[in-house]
Design a protein around this nucleic acid. Sequence first.
DNA 1: GCCAACGTTGGC
DNA 2: GCCAACGTTGGC
Length: 146
Amino acid sequence: MKSEPDELSIDAALATQTIAWFGVRNYQARNFMRDTMRVGDGVLFYHSSCAEPGIAGIAEVASVAYPDDTQFESASKYFDPKATPENPRWFQVDIHAACKTRLLGLPEMRTCEALSDMLVLKKGSRLSITPVTANEWATIMGLLGK
DNA sequence: GCCAACGTTGGC
DNA sequence: GCCAACGTTGGC
């Protein structure tokens, strides 16, 4: 899951009990949260749009998906006039930050053959949430010494 | 700040 | 349902 450290860094996430991952406004990313995430799933906390993009920590999914209230709030930048509480369009999950890791930067990830198919590394990939396979997870834990 | 890549919107 | 125009993302 991508987070801009200026918005929410791994340090800030660790200082927060439960992080509500609101504001996702992309259908694919929404579907990953709603349809494939389960409580207890591992999360790679990725710093994006910053000097050193890469994996900065590990977190855990702490809830199933539930409606993102900001879609109903007309004053919110995440407001969606086409969404209603009866028929919500956008969902969020709760996340619990587990630990900070050394920064596993993009260049290092790209040199790793076992990670070459990771969605987040694909050219032009802009999805803020992408799935990680069990093998990719294991490879990354190895690189992080976890 | 640039720009490639991608998603969304809306006219037709 | 096509596709041009536009907006956004995010690495560099």
